[in-house]
Every structure is written in structure tokens, then in C-alpha cells.
Amino acid sequence: MTLLTMIIFPILKMILLLSLPFLFIGVINKVKAKFAGKQGASIFQPYFDFNRLMNKGEVISETSTAIFRVAPVINLACLIVAAMLVTVIHFEGDFILFSYLLALGKFVSVAAAMDTGSSFEGMGASREVSYTSLIEPAFFIIISSICAMNGVYSFASLAHLFWSNNDIMILIALATVFALFLIILIEGSRVPIDDPKTHLELTMIHEVMVLDNSGVDLAFIQYGAALKMMLFTTIITMTIAPLSFVGSVLVALAIAVLIGIIESLCARIRLTHIIEYTFTLIVAALIVMALVLLIMHGGHL
């Protein structure tokens, strides 16, 4: 039993986490197609696309330097290590490492975009940084509040949040899940923040940063973007279904379907309003903090 829960289970989870991101995207696209009354591409299409890109040659701008070359690899490496932190290894302060691994990945991506010297990519980089800068504080407020409550300063403390008898705990869990879901939409560049399907350079946020990338680099970037969404999805599953294996997969699937539905029914919000929108995230984080303080001081609803 211990062997199963302590070693095999996490490793299986890690393998799933690394292999499923494209399926996640595939499900979103399928849901969108169904909403549009279309047949839609196979849910495995992103895997075929990945394979196609991996076999393609690369075109590298003459004006770019080594940063442009190494950025996709560093970014992906950061994300894979981060994936280990939410599945296999838990230690004190792992969420801090997690957050800064993501930040490092983003830093190199932004640096690479600036490196190309294109006016588009600089624009994309500045947008990406402005709109995702609010994620980090919100994420820290949420996780550290919950950790402080449990006395365990690691992702492990997220478990059992939902399935407790305490009403406030359930409220905390709901606010946490809501905030994490918003993070998925923002980090994953989904509607209503960004439009992953558009070809219009001037409106893009994430896509415009990677206009110069092609071939294997682009494959890595696309895999990285999907993996990042999966990472936060995994954190949600840790909150809702900490032990059940099937449960986590079902939760992930439900999130993908939900994103698909939102993308089908919502228009994208105006770029100037995104900052206001991301403040919802901070609000959710502050609610979590307030509720945690309430619990820690022995309050009841």
C-alpha cells in the first residue's frame, strides 16, 4: 500500500502529466468544434502537429543571438522540473521553487522574443509580462495561506482541502480552484484573455512572442504552453481529488471541457481591460487569505 501510494502512484502521475498536455488541448478544440456544429479534428491532432514540427527544419533570424536558440529548451526544462514538483517530489518550500522555475522559463522566453528585434515580438513580450505579472503574487498568497493553516509548507498541504467537514475549508477550496482556473486561462493564453486561434499579429499576446520560432523550437514552445496549463490543472486536481487516480484524470477532462465551452460562448476582452480582469485573481487570493486567517483564529461561519 505504501509502495503504491508513495512511489508508483506519483510516478504514474508524472508520466501522465507529461504525456497528456496535448490531449488537453485536443479536448478543448474538440469541444469548440462541437459547439460550432463542426466535426472537428481528432483529439490527438496536437500530437500529430507536434510530430510534424519535430521533423521540420528551422529558420533562424540573422539578427538573433544564442539566447534565441537556447530559450525554448530552458523554458521546457523549467516546466518539466516544475512538473516533478507537483507530482513526484514534495519538500518544504517546493511551491516557491515551482513559481520561480515558471518565472525563469518566462524570463528566457521574453528575452528571446526581445532578442529577435522585431517590433511585433517586443510588443508581445511587454504584453505577456504585464498580464501575467499579477499571477505570481496571487499564487503565493493562496498557497502560503493554505500552507500556514496546515503547517506544512509544500504542495502536499493542498490535499484534503475540499473533503473536510469544515465549511470554511470548502470555501477556501472553492476560491482556490477558481483562482487556479483563472491562472490556467491567463497562463495558457486562452479566451477571454488571448485568442489562441487568431492569425492577427497585432492582437496576440503569447503567439506574437514566438512568431520567429519554427521547427523543433516551436514544437517545444507549444508543448511547454500546453504543459503549463496541465501543471495548474494538476494543482487543481490535487485540491479536488488528491488520492483518486481516475478522479484526477476526470477533473482534468472537466476543466478542458469547461475551457472549450468558455471559448465558444465568450468574446475576447479588450486588451486594456485584461489588467482589470486579472485583478479578480487577486481578489480570490485575498478571500482565501481572509478565510485562512478566520480559521487560524478559531472562527466559524
Partner: peptide, 16 residues
């Protein structure tokens, strides 16, 4: 116009 603001429903229905 709907397609440009990622409002896919109208983009699809009106396209048809």
C-alpha cells in the same frame, strides 16, 4: 468581426 474578437459562435453561424 465576431471571428476577430474570438466570438466563435457568430463567426461560424454567420459563415454558414
Amino acid at each position: 468581426i465576431a471571428g476577430d474578437i474570438a466570438y466563435l459562435m457568430a463567426a461560424n453561424v454567420l459563415g454558414v
